[in-house]
Design a protein around this nucleic acid. Structure first.
Length: 440
DNA sequence: CATCCACAGGAAGATCTGGTAG
DNA sequence: CTACCAGATCTTCCTGTGGATG
């Protein structure tokens, strides 16, 4: 019998609580006695239509400053409308440069081009389906309408699910364009086996053809591909450059016109959102988010104007929300580790892997959890560094050895509070005093 | 200039999870 | 029930190393 690890159960607690109020729930609000939601369901003073238009999932009817890229991609895909197989394409660009929007735009256009659909687009986000099996399973299931026939999340062999995918593609009898968004993530995590198979699938297909559009942030990910895969996949390349502040302003103005009531935006709001987002590698997604959150905060306070101050506040809110969401969804062991770092930070802000590990072991003991090995903790520290929660850099102290120097990169008190909101708190509160004494 | 500390971090493989299939 | 699957997580074992120090 395997040992039961207690953290598996404790981990379940403290999940996500964020309920978002939908437009529909507002409809049921008129009742004889005052409803608690009344004061939130105010008259439309700020937003005039669906604020979803400001979310990244929304595909607008035109994409300003992406005409060249749209042309390039359309030229490639149009080959498919004549019954031939378009080249595989790799699309590169930083987050929020309009890669996904452009590809989706093209796929929408291609789909309504002819009455009988000649091209079937399969969109897969490789962040959500982030394993080879996961991607194929997702693609197979998007062919299947009957829920009882859907492929399971696990249990099947890779070969079985891949064969089914080939069969389904073949049955379709037309061009299938597979869009693999965030492809670099998949390759880093799961290698290029799937790409190898997909890129030569046409050898086995008679009635159908398959093309691949790979979307990636990182230009260098192709270095990790097998040479054959690299040449087959990168038949065409399109690079999206970041938007500059002026271009971001155009995008924001377009969308703001659709979403906001006339005259609610102070004139410096859009330039400010654009400037802030331009600092972050021209991320349109960020610019739109700033605008939306600023609008929501003005609405909540029942004001009729959105000001620059709202934008600055939105910026802070977004940053804080991102961090606290990351903290809340951390695995249990990482939370214990982070708590150890906080405990140590109260004495000294800089620490080495060895320091952290000692505190961590003590904390595990007092909480009653089996501690992980130092090797593993080293990896977890690197993960927390990647998430931006820590700063961990490798440093040599000569004869003092070579180690990671670790420092907390988020505010200590807020972080402790968020971690303490978890079940961990109960153990931590009771054990805190003991841990403190064992440290000295 | 060799030594040596305190790890870093790669490789391989064990263990566990949540499933299918016979 | 057993055999098997993919993937996540973690351990064991290992070689490598920057630079202060004797």
């Amino acid at each position: 019998m395997g040992e039961i690890l207690p953290y598996l159960y404790l981990l379940k607690i403290g999940g996500r609580y964020g309920f978002s109020m939908t437009e529909q729930s507002a409809v049921n609000a008129h009742q004889p006695r005052p409803n608690i939601f009344d004061r939130y369901v105010c008259s439309p003073t700020i937003f005039r239509s669906n604020r979803e238009i400001l979310r990244p999932s929304y595909i607008p009817s035109s994409l300003p400053h992406r005409e060249r890229e749209i042309d390039q991609l359309a030229a490639i895909i149009s080959i498919g409308l004549n019954g031939d197989r378009p080249s595989n394409v790799l699309v590169f660009g930083k987050t929020g440069t309009g890669k996904t929007a452009t590809v989706r735009f093209i796929s929408n256009e291609a789909s309504r081009m002819t009455r009988e659909r000649k091209i079937e687009f399969l969109y897969v986000n490789c962040c959500e389906a982030d394993t080879n099996y996961g991607v194929v399973q997702y693609m197979v299931n998007s062919f299947i309408t009957n829920p009882e026939e859907r492929a399971p999340y696990n249990g099947w062999s890779m070969e079985r699910i891949y064969t089914l995918f080939k069969e389904k593609t073949e049955q379709l009898g037309r061009l299938v364009v597979v869009v693999l968004d965030e492809l670099d993530r998949l390759v880093y995590k799961a290698g290029d086996d799937l790409l190898y198979n997909l890129s030569r699938i046409n050898d086995d297909l008679k009635n159908s053809k398959l093309s691949i559009i790979g979307i990636a942030n990182d230009l260098k990910f192709t270095d990790f591909l097998d040479a054959r895969v690299r040449s087959r996949l990168g038949e065409e390349r399109i690079v999206f450059s970041p938007y500059n502040a002026g271009e971001l302003s155009d995008i924001l103005r377009d969308r703001a016109g659709l979403v906001f009531q006339e005259g609610v935006l102070d004139e410096d709001v859009i330039p400010l959102c654009s400037a802030l987002a331009a600092q972050e590698h021209g991320d349109a997604r960020r610019a739109l988010e700033l605008l939306r959150v600023a609008g929501e905060s003005a609405e909540r306070e029942r004001r009729t104007k959105i000001t620059a101050a709202d934008v600055y506040r939105a910026k802070e809110k977004i940053e804080l929300d991102t961090v606290s969401e990351t903290l809340r969804t951390l695995p249990y062991q990482s939370k214990i580790l982070l708590m150890s770092i906080i405990i140590h930070s109260e004495k000294r802000s800089m620490m080495t892997t060895g320091d952290v590990y000692e505190v961590y072991r003590n904390l595990c003991n007092s909480v009653g959890v089996q501690p992980l090995t130092q090797r593993r903790i080293g990896d977890l520290l690197s993960e927390l560094d990647m998430l931006g929660i820590l700063r961990a850099r490798v440093r040599s102290f000569g004869r003092g050895g070579r180690t990671k120097e670790v420092e907390l990169a988020v505010p200590i008190n807020e972080t402790r509070d968020i971690l303490a909101g978890d079940e961990l708190l109960k153990s931590y509160r009771t054990s805190h005093a003991r841990v403190q004494t064992t440290l000295i």
